[in-house]
Write a protein that binds this DNA or RNA. Structure first.
Lengths: 180, 180
DNA sequence: AGGTACATGTAATTGGTTACATGATTCC
DNA sequence: GGAATCATGTAACCAATTACATGTACCT
């Protein structure tokens, strides 16, 4: 059971989903490809944390829909109270920023402009998700810590903060590149 | 040549350093253990990007001091202008926040309090590094994009922003946990 | 007929962590 | 003598990405 397993259990604790769906839902908060998720689900099923049933579809290919077991749910609840490991951030941009003095001003501007654009795109993406949440759920739902919507709400808020933060940082650097 | 290699070249472009020193300097911006760095340096030397000489020390054990070659410097400059990969953030806390509805209020408060403390510690750490930079370097140095100090300055600013951001987010969640 | 999204899987490789291993030097 | 920091390395393992592989259903 690695961290990704708990992320998948956290999704399945809300609703049963196929491996393909799990891959899509977890993407924004934990990067994982289908080639990592499918074998992991099989392993988790072997160990009794999830089960699956095949759901036949007529408009799309058939799928395996996974559900969390009570053993999986217990495991998930225990994990939340265990010590939390520190976040790991690996951003090539940080290393490039460190070596910025080795490049010409035009390249530096290009580098930070495209990164500002990346943050703008992410911001729009998360704003859209947040709007969707607020349309679907009432305030009493997503503002209540006991509600599943609360977790999604605070997660999206963190993602929004982070994107704004990154965007502001890029603009700040760009302003110095233009004056300096 | 992976991303870590370029990070190491970026450090060596400023000053020659031992593997042990490189490990310490790169830590805040790219997590890597000595067991990954030592073999990588050997490989980079084989490929002609760095060289090393043994420096005898009397107060400490002897060390291998690595220097960047012109081939390594060329490689580094080209890399800066290549397309930048997206950042990868893996934070167990995000997955726990998502499943927060499964736990009791006391555990939730504990979880966010200790994470707030982590951000406070990081903030203090980076503030200290920033102060050191400002004491060592003149404003004309660290505010000039052509200076090596500029890269360090904007990196520390990003780390500070990020820590503050995370701390505020934790306090915001905690305020909702106390009211909700 | 070709492209895209849906859907699931395995194999090979790289990247990264943990554990094992050794030794110098300093401070208490 | 024992702990802490400095210093370098290898081995085993786990996590993650890339590539290989197959097939359905829908739309143009």
């Amino acid at each position: 059971m690695n961290t990704l397993s708990y992320g998948l259990l956290g999704l399945l604790a809300r609703a049963s989903r196929s491996g393909y769906e799990l891959m899509q839902y977890i993407q924004p908060f934990w990067q994982a490809k289908h080639s990592q998720i499918y074998p992991l689900l099989a392993k988790m099923e072997q160990e009794g944390y999830v089960t699956h049933e095949v759901v036949l579809q007529s408009d799309k290919p058939d799928k395996k829909v996974y559900s969390i077991t009570s053993k999986g749910s217990d495991k998930l609840k225990i994990w939340i109270n265990e010590p939390t490991t520190e976040p790991v951030l690996r951003d090539e941009m940080m290393l490039k920023a460190y070596s910025l003095w080795l490049t010409d001003p035009e390249s530096a501007v290009r580098l930070f402009s495209s990164r500002a654009q990346m943050y703008a795109d992410k911001l729009a993406y998360y704003e859209n998700l947040m709007q969707g949440l607020k349309e679907r759920e009432s305030e009493t739902s997503y503002l209540s810590p006991a509600s599943p919507a609360f977790g999604r709400y605070i997660l999206l808020q963190k993602a929004l903060d982070n994107s704004k933060n990154g965007q502001n940082w890029c603009e700040w650097v760009l302003s110095m590149l233009k004056n300096g």
